[in-house]
Write a protein that binds this DNA or RNA. Structure first.
Lengths: 208, 208
DNA sequence: GCCGTTACTGGACATTTGTACAGTAATCGG
DNA sequence: CCGATTACTGTACAAATGTCCAGTAACGGC
């Protein structure tokens, strides 16, 4: 009673693939057409069986309302996912959100990131070894949130000499200064014009 | 001509919210009903305008086929997203995919992770500082893929004394052994029964 | 004033769609 | 042999749905 038949799994997989590729799920007759059924009732019966087995949810009498049930979220409450553009090097000033200069995107749920869905967030490829003391390596992807106030100890993306680098943000006698987390790099004297591009809220590393 | 009207943005936002929350987009008459329109044509005109402005895509004569266009992926080819369960501590043996013992999930696109959508992948909260030399800190989330052959130098999740720990996988004279990336921890002699739970394919760190 | 745009009302029509009922055939376990 | 399950065919109907045509009203720019 719990698991579906082979045929039912095929129907389920068809609905799932359509949902993923086109965003809309097929109608009863489209399912029938795909499998060569001459009667809509054939597909109807399969959908009903899948619904009873908890693998599918449909709103009654609503067109194309079938939704495959994610085993991880049976309640249907899927977390919000943020689309974060990757900038190899941030241009001077504020990176435009719809810019074409990005090198792809990372998609990740906002809960893991700990950001608000409305946040202006972007990602940066880390270059160099100035932050190895804090576990930030060359090639890592730093997820940076723009427009929030850095706290002391935060890792921030700062604009220095026209280039963006990651540094630790610290306060000394009420004045902010930046520190590299590597003994081979010098601390940065407090600058008059400290351009903080954003605060690192997450880090993503991919196996090489 | 490029940007939408205030009213059109409202309609777009309504469609987007419904798509995100329920998976299905509203019908023309449901849009009309939500905004209090007495005629379906009012909503129809808005949808048509949004379509012409590239903010919406609909399949002709198909029920509930409206799909909001993601500015990051105007072509509509959204990357596949993996749902990765988080295990605080892996139980002995193979973690079941649909287990209730997980502590939430991470959702992230498979391209960033570099895994196949079919891969058996899970995440582990890193405890301790045995891998700080490789930039893996306490509290990090290690994304581990099960069932692939580790290469020398890979970070692996290994079962030692009934507990799972991250170590660097190395070969010495044809025999595998494990190394901790912290001088305060000893290397592990090659064990007869080396239980490799999986290979770390990615790392996710969240700001504390 | 006049024209174009935006934002609707009101009514209508052809399809699409979910759903239901009746029936057939194959398979499998007892 | 028989009942249950699975997997369909065939037909039908009411509701949902996309689409179209004919208007009306407000508003802003020239």
């Amino acid at each position: 009673m719990h698991s579906a038949t082979k045929r039912q799994r095929e129907v389920w997989e068809f609905i799932r693939s359509r949902q993923e590729r086109f965003g809309t799920t097929p109608s009863i007759r489209e399912i029938a057409g795909h499998f060569g059924f001459l009667s809509p009732n054939a597909a109807q019966a399969h959908v009903q069986a899948l619904r009873h087995k908890g693998l599918l949810k449909t709103h009654s009498r609503r067109a194309r309302s079938a939704q495959v049930v994610d085993p991880h979220f049976p309640e249907g409450e899927r977390p919000a996912i943020a689309t974060i553009p990757i900038y190899g090097e941030i241009p001077a000033g504020l990176p435009a959100d719809n810019s074409q200069e990005n090198e792809g995107c990372v998609l990740i749920d906002v809960e893991t990131l700990g950001i608000k869905p409305s946040a202006r967030t972007f990602a940066l490829k880390v270059r160099g070894d100035s932050m190895t003391g804090k576990g930030i390596l060359d090639g890592d992807l730093a997820v940076v949130e723009h427009g929030i106030q850095p706290r002391a100890g935060d890792t921030v993306a700062a604009l220095i000499d026209g280039r963006v680098t990651l540094k630790t943000f610290l306060m000394q006698r009420g004045k902010p200064y930046l520190r590299a987390e590597n003994p081979r790099y010098p601390d940065l004297a407090p600058q008059e014009e400290l351009q903080i591009q954003g605060v690192m809220v997450a880090l993503i590393r991919k196996r090489k």
